[in-house]
Design a protein around this nucleic acid. Sequence first.
RNA 1: UGGGGCGUAGCCAAGUGGUCUAAGGCACCGGCUUUUGAUGCCGGCAUCCGGAGGUUCGAAUCCUCCCGCCCCAGCCA
Length: 563
Amino acid sequence: MSTPETDTEIETAGNFIRDIVADDVNQGRIADVVTRFPPEPNGYLHLGHAKSICLNFGIADDFSGRCHLRFDDTNPVKEEIEFIDAIKEDVRWLGFDWGEHLYFASDNFQQLYDWAEYLIENGNAYVDDLSADQIREYRGTLTEPGKPSPHRDRTPEENLDLFRRMAAGDFDDGARVLRAKIDMASGNINMRDPVLYRILRAEHPRTGTDWCLYPTYDFAHGQSDAIEGVTHSLCTLEFEDHRPLYDWLVEHLPVPATPRQYEFARLNLTNTVLSKRRLTQLVDAGHVNGWDDPRMATISGFRRRGIPAAAIRDFCTRIGVTKAASTAETAYLDHCTRELLNKTARRRMAVLDPLKVVIENYPEGDGEELTAVNNPNDDAQGTRPVPFSREIYIERSDFMEDPPKKFFRLGPGREVRLRFAFFITCTDFIKDADGNVTELRCTYDPETRGGNAPDGRKVKGTIHWVSAAHALNAEVRLYEPLFTVADPGAGNGDFLDDLNPYSLKVLTGCKLEPGLADLALGETVQFERQGYFCLDPDATPAAPVFNRTVGLRDSWAKAQKKS
RNA sequence: UGGGGCGUAGCCAAGUGGUCUAAGGCACCGGCUUUUGAUGCCGGCAUCCGGAGGUUCGAAUCCUCCCGCCCCAGCCA
């Protein structure tokens, strides 16, 4: 089984951020470690977020501290309740618990507003009447310094009056902004009088229409950290440039604590996209079936595909945390998934591309139950009965009319073992008018029940099968990478041009072992010799649907490809 | 021509002057085992750490210069 409850523990791994935290604790600078995971509720969580979640909650665990879940909901035009709920579910499913520490930046709107007035009173912020375009012009460029806004030297009194009127709704959206008064000539553009508040008449998911002006990320984030007592504020590299501003605000405001920001490299994965902008585009344009499409690198997509949370956690600790831009190969995640599932997943038999086999010397109308092992790597998982009868299905690819020597499966006159059942020998095959093989005629050796011959003779191949009369009919969905190239849209191309048209393959009429009818949503099992599969939420008792989580390694197929 | 970062094998990543003729994992390549051509096991896979100089008895680790890559000019986060 691979439900979250039975997942194995994550291993902790050292990294430069843990070293910093450990040093702070050892030097007595920090008594209680507090971290936070701060998503903006404008989309679903993806693998990159999982890396951050594992880091933040992992560090809190390691140092007996705590990790908050805080929604960075400062932009009401992009944020929705649906995303808040989905994010909470995903974090929980990943195996983390924020306890009582659920926060929203919007909880701090009043305090932030008061601090904005404080900044104004101390001459550290001013109201600017310039338009967005003008502000951009005045900001200068990467290589040229900016120039001061004509409104930069308003008196604190005038600024306070204007700011209060901004809050009172006296001005149109975008008419004025509040800016920090720092340094228009700074090489760091974030320090060129960054905007702290903008007028926005949008209904906020939590504060409704209480406010018509909202703080920017820069003004809300660090102060929220300080209010919550966050000690280590971990974010990705693109915020490194914001750290001077983060520190400037903490320094110029009477905040209750001095949190520190540390940055690490964001995660990239080959053959997929991991930016919210692109994921949103895939969903909105219908290239996938929603945020939880099993092909998406979202947490909910992985969950639906059957990847256990523990495999994702394991992957996150294995890739590490550094400041070097990195792109992990999907093969690495696949490996983590297989490694965990190999140890935990129950085995079942399923024929995806059925070919009927009639065992001619098996009494018509008879049947029996054979015993199959649930997990050869874990005896504790026990056994199960599997029905056997005269007509069965085997995988079409397990028969060749004219097989090469190295082919260990079925062919005219060849003998193989049916897993957990009997040796059978192919005596004949039937073709239709088009030359397709439609049925195999075989004989079985009753002495080989269970899979061993008393006379000691061996067979090279063992194939899986399902009794025709007892088979569960199902749809099975196979997934391939969403994109055909490692880095979709590399250079200046459109990433949509790299979409893999064959990323989803739907098989119908698959024949599954009957016990699979009782498989619970959320459990991933192994279909022997094929891969790991789980029930899809689309399934109904009358029409089961399974997703392939990941295939088994297949050295035979690999060898075939080479020759 | 600005500011901030980063460069160790195809990928991720240890390493912070001597035990480095550089961990570990993924991928790949051999072999053994096997009632899943799965798993497991064994072995192989960087004389070299972006490059060039220099310091030192000694450098991937220190210094200098050079090269390459990433991020920043949202009233997004």
